[in-house]
Design a protein around this nucleic acid. Structure first.
Lengths: 155, 155
DNA sequence: TGCCAACATTGGTGTCACCAACAAAGGGAG
DNA sequence: CTCCCTTTGTTGGTGACACCAATGTTGGCA
């Protein structure tokens, strides 16, 4: 369930550190997410959701492209797609013009599941952001985008 | 090294989600952290740093208290302290008045290591926050504190 | 005295991220 | 047409972090 128990008291040296605060917040978010998925998500996890989202938005795609688009390693894509295929949420067909490649597409059932997961995520999100005002939520998104842009170009 | 490769393109459904953005940012931070520790940290990890910080701030403590203060599970505390003790950064002595309990204290060498790790962390932090203005950094901390306060009282 | 709680430890589980190696398939240079 | 290089999917393993269950020891309390 990933409860992530809060520390009783927090050392000054950590308390002041933005990266520490960020990690704590992310831990809380992922805890809520895991709880929500465990309750209403048929045992699906973050990887599964990400893959379904990408497939619904961009349509059938090869596994390698899927991995690049979602930032998930090829090997993890293979494993997660295996789960999704076993549940009938996704189909794999060999690319006729490229027999080494497999084209993955989302099924009707997959789309329906995705819509259900979206609702779960909306609820979790709302719970997570509850302490923030509308203005603070905007600041939050703005700052996160800046930090993530840095990531895309950095290193 | 935990490079955490950035996705090429990001689904709208994810891109808009604060929790997704948060997760991405946290992944970047932890990636930078891991890289810094790998390079200048004698193979120490987050758990070790947290424990050293708590010990330096609050002095000798039992392992159970240490776990509660840092939010680390008792079993993980035991393992991490084993590493620290092997490196001579920490000492475990039996509590005279409570023979089942072990009092952990940081050594001279431990304090020196901690100071070195602090520098590493400062650098990483600066790199991570580089894209933010001073005002945005304040907003960031404020928002994170709100989210974490919620965590302390929530659920 | 007997029971219960706390402590340290061992040994698991699960999630996410990542890496190495491999065979199958295709593409390009010579 | 070969040889080489790359891409693709797959298998299997690693590491960090968070968490749980069970066990033996110890102390406090009723």
């Amino acid at each position: 369930m990933r409860e992530h128990v809060a520390p009783h008291r927090i050392p000054d040296r950590l308390k002041e550190r933005p990266t520490w605060l960020l990690g704590q917040a992310a831990a809380r978010a992922s805890s809520l997410l895991a709880a929500g998925f465990a309750e209403h998500g048929d045992g699906l996890r973050g990887y599964h959701y990400r893959l379904l989202v990408a497939l619904e938005q961009w349509g059938p795609e090869s596994q390698a492209d899927l991995g690049r688009d979602t930032g998930i390693d090829r090997s993890d894509v293979t494993a997660a797609l295996g789960d999704l295929e076993a549940l009938g949420l996704v189909e794999r067909t060999v690319d006729p013009g490229h027999r080494r490649r497999k084209i993955v597409s989302i099924t009707e059932s997959g789309s329906a599941t995705l819509r259900r997961l979206d609702v779960v995520l909306d609820d979790v999100q709302e719970e997570f952001l509850a302490p923030l005002s509308a203005a603070q939520r905007e600041q939050f998104v703005e700052i996160m985008l800046l930090l993530n842009d840095q990531r895309a170009t950095g290193s």
